[in-house]
Amino acid sequence: MQNSGIEVLFEGSNFERLLGGLLVTIEISFVSIVIGTVLGIVMGLLRTLNVKPLQALLRLYLEAFRIIPILVWLYVVHFSFTPLLNIDISGETTSILVFSLWGAAEIGDIVRGALQSMPKHQEESGAALGLSRGQLYRYILIPQAIRRMVPGAINLATRMIKTTSLVVLIGVIEVVKIGQQIIELGVIKAPTASFWVYGFIFILYFAVCFPLSRISRRVERRWQN
């Protein structure tokens, strides 16, 4: 059989290294989603309060992430922290910082949307049944709000995992970077490596993101009513 070049994926520890690189990507997304969710819940609650200046400020914060691409924010933090502020931070930390702040903005919007879309009669019926304030939140409002938030939050997680592929551009050693190293090493022995390596990374991302989108869609359909 003719040599197709796909062997490059399994040579030495290449396969494990690529998976390890994917893990770095997933780790950055995971930590950012956790931090972003905690901050985002606070922000979402703050946005439902009727404090005009605070609302305007948080809205501006959200729009900053919606209008300026995430890669620009990565560059801003990456290039400005060390020279301008004399703070030395790694590419990973930069990424987690930017993705957490972005996550907080988006989760905040999801939480606000869920809380504001709750029909008023839910609260009133609960109160009419004689539920206390605490019971009202515990049994009526929070469970319903969570149902409205989960599909959006999973969607955001998928988007974030895809977007973490950008961290290679600020020097983080993750799956794409390891792929590049494998390609460079194999320049003579495996000239078609870039086809297989990038193709494989493409499949890796798909294997992670596809199940998440499916779950999000299923949850959305099941919890629609």
């Binding site: 592929s165 794409v176 870039s194 086809f195 798909f206």
Partner: peptide, 15 residues
Amino acid sequence: RNTPLLVQLFFLYYG
């Protein structure tokens, strides 16, 4: 929808 643009571009351009 389930793969990043960066990887799509690298595959097109280098692969």
